[in-house]
Design a protein around this nucleic acid. Sequence first.
DNA 1: ATTATATAAAACCTTTTGGTTTCATGTCAA
DNA 2: TTGACATGAAACCAAAAGGTTTTATATAAT
Lengths: 121, 121
Amino acid sequence: MSASAQKHDVFQAIADPTRREVLKLLSERELPISEITSHFSISRTAIAKHLKILSEAELVSGRKEGREKIYRLHPEPLSELKQFYDQFWSNRLSVLKHIVETGGENSGLKLIPSETEKKEP
Amino acid sequence: MSASAQKHDVFQAIADPTRREVLKLLSERELPISEITSHFSISRTAIAKHLKILSEAELVSGRKEGREKIYRLHPEPLSELKQFYDQFWSNRLSVLKHIVETGGENSGLKLIPSETEKKEP
DNA sequence: ATTATATAAAACCTTTTGGTTTCATGTCAA
DNA sequence: TTGACATGAAACCAAAAGGTTTTATATAAT
């Protein structure tokens, strides 16, 4: 097992709000399709398709138990999100550049006076 | 400024690989459309559309300078990604649950023997 | 054996996406 | 003022997304 052709990647998988909701549901406990469906206003078939996409992205897996299929979350691939995020926001020169260039506006970070400067006003 | 109707959100914006590449490019320095286009094999028009989507998600902004339009990155909204990621992976009971239930397989985390147990074999 | 549940699979439909090509417009350079 | 850029905007297209409905199948419960 290794190189999977992966028709759907994590980024695509989480692009849809319904799919994000499903993941949230499954983060609490594993659930059969029917129960997942009950949380939404769309058809069971539609949910099944969403689950298929999520499982292609390896974010969930389903096992059949009796007549129902029970899905469980596999949060691992979400680390790609963090990676992507970090590419722009963590320990990166570009962030410093951004802050310097903009003076920190809108950066979510601020250039603040040092401790020593702040104390004793 | 506040409630923006936001036709495209961050998740949708980064769903497309080309768009992710564009963001990467812009993380180095701001660039005019033509130059961005030169990094891809698709038309300038297509790139312009991608930029529109990115700017609807407020991930980039463009200013017109002379005859060219220069785009710059606005990484702030990407924090939504981290938020989403953290929802599943950080400081969450569900993570512990997941680890306990699976014994840590595929979790990216492991249950290892404590220091004292490990020492002196 | 019969019926109700839970899902699977297929066919179909509409809207959105990701592209293209074509034409118009503003700006810089000769 | 005449081109040569750099874009903007519109029309058009094929394929993918997100749904629905219908039909079939396996399993549980009576």
